[in-house]
Simulated assay, not measured.
Amino acid sequence: MEHKYKRIEDSRIEIKQLMLPSNANFSGKIHGGHILSLMDQVAFACASKHSETYCVTAAVERVEFLHPIEVGELVSMKAQINYVGRTSMIVGIRVESEDIKTGTVKHCNSSYFTMVAKDEQGKTTAVPGLVINSENAIRRFLRAAHKVSYLKTKIEKFNSRKVEEFMDEVYLSQLKLFNVKIELDQKD
């Protein structure tokens, strides 16, 4: 069977939604949880469109809220596939809000959702490859590939060590760089 490839534009998604008072938190700004829910939905749609199957969220890379979103603003979420593995995809999402009275647009956050393709039995399934057709797409793909490789190495490094190894002076001295106090009188 010939391996299938899809273009980034073929699964790109953009949604727009007006922010309502029911979406606000106690301070009157749009609740971050509401924005995260919308981001998860757009990531699902983008990944499912690319893989042509059901997808689940496996991980969300750091979400940093750069600017608050106000009630009455129009929120735009743009999602695209930045990276594909064998069964997973990284969806890049950019969130912007627009003051519909003035037309002022602000970048509110960007995040990366790792989505995994599933078959009808709930097993992971292979996803199409990605056709990369711009310098920005190359940069995004390689940045994501580097992060995937780094995370695998980091997980292996910390999971393969015994607890006693972290008691070594090299590791303990690293803790002095952080806002922690060590009180080792009990075992976990």
Rank of each mutant, 00 (worst) to 15 (best):
T53R: 14
E70N: 11
L36H: 03
S110M: 07
P128Q: 06
R140Y: 09
M39I: 15
K147T: 13
G72T: 03
M77H: 01
M115T: 04
N159H: 14
A117E: 04
T114H: 03
K162E: 14
L36Q: 08
K106L: 08
G85F: 06
S97I: 01
H67M: 05
M89G: 00
H34C: 08
K154C: 09
F158A: 08
E52F: 08
I132M: 05
T124W: 02
E52R: 14
G85N: 07
T87K: 10
Q121K: 15
V127I: 07
Q41D: 11
S48G: 11
E164A: 14
L74W: 00
L130A: 04
F141S: 02
C108Q: 02
K49G: 06
I90A: 04
I81H: 00
I35D: 00
I132H: 01
N133Q: 14
V131Y: 10
L74S: 03
E135N: 13
I155G: 02
V75H: 00
E61Q: 13
H146A: 14
S149G: 12
K162L: 14
A126P: 06
H50N: 10
H67T: 02
R140I: 01
T153V: 12
K157C: 07
A126R: 11
M167A: 13
K123I: 03
L142W: 12
R161F: 14
S51A: 15
E164I: 13
K78W: 00
H31W: 13
F113Q: 01
V91E: 01
V131A: 06
Y112D: 00
T114I: 15
A117Q: 05
K78I: 07
A59P: 04
K152R: 15
A145W: 03
H50L: 10
L74H: 02
G122R: 07
G32D: 06
